[in-house]
């Protein structure tokens, strides 16, 4: 289990472009896959979502 978690983490670094440049470190959320179903400002949220009171 521990090894599979380590392997997944290493693969995530490679997939997100942190493999060859070891000086570059991922930001917060830098290893997370883009989720089209989650609320994404500018993509699937109205432009005034911050000011809408009832939501």
């Amino acid at each position: 289990m521990r090894v599979s978690q380590q392997w997944e983490n290493i693969q995530a670094h490679i997939w997100h472009g942190y493999g060859h440049d070891l000086d570059k470190t991922p930001d917060n959320g830098g290893l997370v896959e883009f989720c089209a179903a989650c609320a994404q400002p500018g993509i699937n949220l109205p432009s005034d979502w911050r000011t809408q009171k009832d939501q």
Partner: peptide
């Protein structure tokens, strides 16, 4: 896991 973190970059470049 903490021990491994210091080795991760080496593992990554070997892989």
């Amino acid at each position: 896991m903490r021990d491994w973190q210091s080795h991760r970059d080496n593992f990554l470049s070997e892989i």
